[in-house]
Design a protein around this nucleic acid. Structure first.
Length: 279
DNA sequence: AGTACTACCTGGAGGC
DNA sequence: TGCCTCCAGGTAGTAC
């Protein structure tokens, strides 16, 4: 969508807006999309040039979907069933009661923000620094692609007396890790999610840092983990759910040692781990 | 500086 | 088929 010029912005459910109004968004008509960036779980859509600039910030929450459809692509509600039983969507979802934002472009393209559960948020920064937005300024460095030595020292300095899981989910420590990837990272590093991180050796922390990077990298290469309704910007489901070791597999045998995977609540989130591989 | 809990929402799955 | 309960990729706010 970079290069497109917005010619309509329709907010169908203002509840997803934070700190801005439908009127503010309507003021974006005429702005050109100059770049699309990511900061942790936030998407930054850069708009305008010269003295007219703005940034649309989108967080997808649990079920948010941001899709871009060109004039040539029809919206569709076609689904395929995968071998694993999950439904895979094909193409952008049609506009329905869960579509909260529709932005049209001069070329006939459409940016759609759809979010059944409405935990997602849309913010408008205007022509100010990203850091003036509290949601963004609070974030720690991006977990994906951060310098390993920096990541390790941050984990040491910010672990407190908290469980590994609580630290990984804390977006002010490292930003971008959610429940799925926190569990998968702990498994890959052989660390029990409820283990107090300050008691973990420096060498094991280095393993955790490498594990986080690999787990996130695999998730991205697999175009995301599509439980229920996740789709990418093209409307297509990802395939990482076929590749998980622990998340969503409670009670099933460990893919490495065949021990029965355990489930419990850690840091207020459902957590799965292998009692034999993770110590 | 932590933890624990609540609120925000809808839809799908499973039990009966 | 319908009704019920439980559960879900997240974050902010409040009380302690």
């Amino acid at each position: 969508m970079v290069g497109e010029i917005l010619d309509s912005v329709e907010v169908r459910h203002p509840g997803v807006l934070e700190g801005c109004t439908a009127r503010d968004l309507a003021g974006l008509v005429g702005f050109r999309v100059t770049a699309v960036e990511r900061r942790a779980k936030y998407l930054l859509i850069r708009l305008g040039d010269g003295d007219r600039r703005s940034t649309l910030v989108v967080h997808l929450g649990m079920t948010g979907q941001l899709t871009w459809k060109t004039a040539a692509e029809p919206t569709t509600d076609v689904f395929k069933r995968l071998v694993s039983g999950y439904r895979k969507s094909v193409g952008a979802h049609g506009v329905d009661s869960h579509t909260h934002l529709v932005a049209g472009s001069a070329s006939g393209g459409m940016l759609l923000f759809r979010d059944p559960r409405r935990f997602g948020r849309v913010l408008l920064l205007g022509d100010v620094a990203d850091e003036s937005c509290p949601r963004l300024s609070r974030l720690g460095p991006d977990a994906w692609g951060a310098d390993p030595a920096e990541m390790a020292s941050i984990l040491v300095s910010r672990c407190g007396r908290r469980s590994a899981k609580a630290v990984l989910l804390d977006q002010t420590v490292l930003a971008g890790i959610g429940n799925i990837y926190a569990d998968e990272s702990c498994f890959a590093a052989g660390i029990r999610p409820d283990r107090i991180l300050s008691g973990v050796s420096r060498s094991r922390l280095a393993v955790l840092v490498r594990s986080i990077d690999r787990v996130l990298d695999k998730g991205v290469r697999n175009a995301g983990t599509s439980f229920r309704n996740f789709v990418g910007s093209d409307g297509e489901a990802g395939s990482n759910q076929e590749d998980l070791f622990v998340y969503g597999r409670g009670g099933l045998p460990c893919r490495v040692c065949h021990a029965r995977l355990r489930v419990a609540t850690v840091a207020q989130r459902t957590t799965v781990w292998c009692p034999r591989c993770q110590t």
